[in-house]
Nucleic acid binder design. Structure first.
Lengths: 417, 417
DNA sequence: AAGTTTTGTTGAAACCTAATACAAATATTT
DNA sequence: AAATATTTGTATTAGGTTTCAACAAAACTT
């Protein structure tokens, strides 16, 4: 289990850099311990509490090693042990080990088009406190938005007794340069070149590491670690909101690309004769499967927002034939783009999130029909298209996972504040 | 360097992933040695001979460890050492270590639409013997093709004194199921469900491991290890031949997807109102940028083959305005699809191979224009679109690298025959 | 010729997990 | 109720791997 956290294929050997002068590739014995601590902590974080014997079985390590490693994690305050109780089977009961979710907290922030959300999440994935508020686009400047975020952060932090944090994760509807935590462009927010990481750090007086990421990339992380795609190593996450975002998992890892811009699924060119897109190009997938397209097809105003969307869903529930037809058409376009992605990635699962989660029942048949027709691998590959199970908090929870990544990779070298 | 051997997420120690190749999860001390042997051998295989001190610097290991590890590799016959000679600088000369390319051979086979190629390649990438022959599609049955391959294999093997092989790599223009080495479908060859790996093994009486892969996936491997994309961690390889193939490297690794079907770049839907594609769908990218499209646009017969293509290139060289215009149009379509892929992967480099390598000078301007216009990350990301440098042997050399992968990952557990 | 610099070699020390033996805690059998 | 079997925790020893430190070897420099 948990290979997703570390990728690495059996016969691996990808090459990366060429010239001989970069960072060391050699491995020392100490690193073995780090790797094993990491494996154990990931087990507990992602799969929940486990007895020591279960950990032995899952990791393949010996009882002695697990005892020593768990002891070290406990000493560091990362896990807690509870005495085991008899369960009816013979043998000495094994104590239960759990992630210490009350003392290893991260801050998660989501900046969506018409929403802000903030949460404090404990190791193991326990959401200790969460706030989501409406925050309509165009009603706030960047500075105001940051101030609003800071206010929410203050609330959740005081609700959790200002317990020190391990890190901060931020998900935002925009293109993010990962090494600088900068939002290069967020069309729906009309942001350009916003150093979001630094702004949030200053506004909230944070001194722990901050990771900013695209909301789709955060969403797929949540979906793959705690949602519908748990256990899947190759996943496409398609999230239709005002814009169409997404995230892709290849061999257990979210793909970031060279600068962190990867995963912009909504701007694949699918219809050169199509509509103009907010990104400046024409005929992007987003123009055919975004919220606007659905509202247009059902005779609503394309910028009708949430109310219009609800009306569409109501009509669909009432089996309005025009609306159902429009949804089927929508599904065909979803299928066309998905088929291309499936031929590109050969995923084991496709997850539809955001608004697409709500329209799922009305579009899935036409989606499947188109996909099956265009898939090259035909029936060979088993692949399913499912609705998100994490739901509206996908990006928020993904942001939390981003903040945990460094701890999980290197459990014993952590700083909190 | 060579973190590629370990990939791993940004924050982790890098080690973990390399050690992680044992499925269990836990890492034992022996794996450290395997990982370090692998790192050293990859250094020598990909970057060529190096002195022991260079290896020390590259791996970060100590002189003692490198000495021991190199000694072990030498004992296994994988590397050879030559006494160092004074180079004008002070200090004791360091012996040079090189991959033993005369005794660690793999067999590479490429089955293209109108070509067969076979080569014997030594560790370090030295091509010891290579044959490429015309083999027009539709003139042979599957069995005949396999027999032709077997004949070529016998030739190259006897030319290399039937030295035992470490493995076999096969690249083919078709969709390959990796775990079974089966060609699910190869439209241009009209193959369906061909157990190619087994057929070749039997026809050539081979007893070493065989790896069959899609030609585009093999091509990108060659290009990234020994061609234009050396050192790049995120690469898109687009190879236009009769069909349009490709391969994608994410974080230093070729992406295979769930069953090995990933990388089918040519069948992205880019024009729903476009032409019917051989795959059964309509408006695939291949219908706009494949060889047929170019011939069509330049007034030739779409199935004119190599002769027609040469005539187009001649006209282009003679600056025939109609042909140049058609090529520019071709470039626009290449750009449209590439822009989508770039938004999806955020690569550091795009490599154009196959026929596209030859038309590169005539299309690159319009490609770039479209791509710049449609890229979301704008000027933020440095990304270049270049022509393949490996050339017509990309898939063949990639197949060889496939065959080396297992040895490189685990240098001391090899069987030859 | 003596000193400096770089590199190979060797043995001890440090780190990590596995293996083994034994103790503890529970269920089952007599 | 006592003995036995089963499972798990603990402690000790052994095996594997790397680093460290000291020394030797081979080159250049003064």
């Amino acid at each position: 289990m948990f290979e997703h956290a570390m990728s690495g294929s059996a016969t691996n050997s990808g090459l990366k850099t060429s010239l001989r002068h970069v960072s060391a590739g050699g491995v020392r014995s100490e690193s073995v311990r780090t790797a094993n601590l990491s494996t154990l902590l990931q087990c507990l974080h992602f799969a929940g509490p486990a007895t020591r014997s279960e950990l032995v079985e899952e990791t393949g390590l010996t009882r002695s090693s697990v005892a020593a490693l768990v002891g070290e994690l406990e000493e560091a305050g990362l896990v807690v042990e509870h005495a085991g109780s008899p369960d009816g089977s013979p043998g000495r009961p094994s104590p239960t080990v759990s992630a210490n979710s009350s003392q290893n907290l991260v801050l998660a922030i989501e900046i969506a088009v018409d929403d802000l959300a903030v949460a404090i999440v404990g190791l193991g994935g326990k959401v200790l406190h969460r706030i989501r508020v409406d925050h309509p686009r165009d009603l706030s400047t960047i500075d105001e938005t940051i101030a609003d975020v800071a206010e929410l952060v203050a609330k959740v932090r005081s609700a959790t007794k200002n317990t020190p944090l391990l890190g901060v994760g931020v998900a935002i509807v925009g293109l993010v340069h990962r090494t600088t935590n900068t939002v290069v462009v967020a069309p729906n927010l009309r942001w350009n070149e916003v150093p979001l990481g630094n702004l949030i750090r200053d506004a909230c007086s944070l001194s722990v590491p901050i990771t900013v990421a695209n909301d789709g990339n955060a969403g797929v992380l949540a979906e793959s670690r705690r949602g519908a795609a748990v256990g899947q190593k190759n996943v496409i996450f398609l999230s239709g909101e005002v814009g169409v975002g997404g995230g892709i998992i290849v061999d257990g890892q979210v793909i970031n690309g060279q600068g962190g811009f990867a995963g912009e699924i909504g701007h694949m060119p699918v219809n050169p004769e199509g509509l103009d897109c907010g990104c400046g190009a024409r005929g992007c997938w987003e123009t055919e499967i975004g919220e606007g397209a659905l509202l247009r097809r059902t005779g609503r105003m394309a910028d009708g927002g949430r109310a219009a969307l609800n009306s569409v869903l109501d009509s669909a529930a009432a089996e309005d034939p025009n609306v159902l037809r429009a949804l089927a058409r929508q599904g065909e376009w979803i299928g066309i783009g998905l088929a291309g992605l499936i031929n590109l990635f050969d995923p084991g699962m496709v997850v539809l999130g955001g608004t697409l989660r709500r329209v799922y029942p009305y579009v899935i048949d036409s989606v499947n029909e188109v996909v099956v027709g265009r898939r090259l691998s035909g029936r060979e590959a088993r692949m399913s298209i499912v609705a998100s199970t994490v739901g509206e908090d996908a990006s928020l929870l993904g942001a939390a996972e981003l903040a945990f990544q460094s701890l999980l990779a290197n459990p014993l070298t952590v700083h909190r504040a």
